[in-house]
Design a protein around this nucleic acid. Structure first.
Length: 297
DNA sequence: AATACGTGGAA
DNA sequence: TTTCCAAGTAT
């Protein structure tokens, strides 16, 4: 295909079909975009939407989140999953407040230096909040590129080629490039999906290499299914759920009751939560979310 | 370069 | 019921 045939198709399609997500509103700040990107890591849009609205009302600036009690932050994170994200977001907010004038940085290297912000999130913030021309590579984009450009059914493992492959699809104009990045993600999220792609609705169907190749099946390595039942992740989740649901510090017995199957595993997981900074132990031996005020009577 | 890290909805 | 998977990051 010609140099920017893809973006020529994608931009009108995006203008007509993009979902009306709250963090895409024109008045959303860099902070709003950053919060959305952290929340969306490995987490479906539908679950993020209500929580993002709450957070932006409650903590409209980085300094607001930085000043909050970590216990309140973790409770507000609720059951979104991967609560270390909340910890890192609060840490990032503190750096932004103290070192960047309470304004989310607009360049990739500075963003990358913040806790919890990696290759994807740094570029997503630069592109979506500040209109920068930089390739934004997430699982959706990697799948779209694998199919439309390389003619493969799946993306496989992340590779060094992903960034230049994606950048090659961006038009020269900075604003058009940023919108193309958003459109690539939107296409992967709503049309060029992992299971049951809706190719009849695809704006680049006639340009798609996978289509031209006859939609060959994936012949690469199959990803190992992630286990859940009985894992440390499940136990950590149970323990944290007890603390989120409690009004204040709890005794060791309350946490023991959360996982009776394997006391040694329970102890190991509690320790890892302490190491991660998701839980604290008070001088009297009770456990609490970080910074939880002592309700001792 | 694998692996750990939460959660819940859909197939 | 089981499996898959959803805008990744850190180690």
């Amino acid at each position: 295909m010609t140099a920017h045939a893809l973006s020529d198709r994608l931009l009108p399609w995006y203008a007509a079909h993009a979902r009306d997500l709250p963090w895409r509103a024109p008045d959303v700040t860099g902070w709003g975009v950053l919060v959305s990107e952290i929340m969306l890591q490995q987490t479906p849009v539908a679950r993020v939407d209500p929580l993002w609205r709450e957070w932006l009302v409650r903590w409209p600036r980085p300094s607001d989140l930085a000043a909050a009690s970590t216990a309140d932050v973790l409770r507000a994170w609720g059951r979104l999953g991967y609560p270390r994200r909340a910890l890192r977001l609060q840490a990032a907010a503190a750096v932004i407040a103290e070192e960047h004038g309470d304004v989310v940085p607009d360049d990739v290297p500075t963003l990358l230096a913040l806790p919890g912000i990696g290759a994807y999130t740094a570029r997503a913030v630069a592109a979506f909040a500040y209109g920068r021309r930089c390739p934004v590579v997430d699982t959706n984009v990697r799948r779209v590129v694998a199919r439309a450009v390389h003619g493969r059914a799946e993306a496989g493992d992340a590779a060094a080629r992903d960034l230049p492959d994606t950048e090659a699809l961006l038009p020269p104009d900075e604003d058009a490039a940023a919108r193309t990045s958003a459109a690539l993600m939107e296409l992967g999220a709503t049309v060029c999906v992992a299971r049951g792609p809706r190719c009849t609705d695809c704006p680049v169907l006639d340009l798609c290499a996978w289509q031209h190749a006859g939609r060959p099946a994936w012949d690469g390595p199959v990803r190992r299914a992630q286990r859940w039942a009985g894992t440390d992740r499940q136990v950590r989740g149970r323990l944290l759920d007890v603390l989120r649901g409690a009004p204040g510090p709890v005794g060791p017995d309350a946490l023991e009751a959360a996982w009776l199957t394997d006391p040694a595993q329970r102890a190991r997981c509690l320790d890892s939560l302490l190491v991660d900074g998701l839980v604290e132990q008070l001088a009297d031996g009770r456990f609490a979310l970080p910074g939880e005020s002592d309700d001792s009577s």
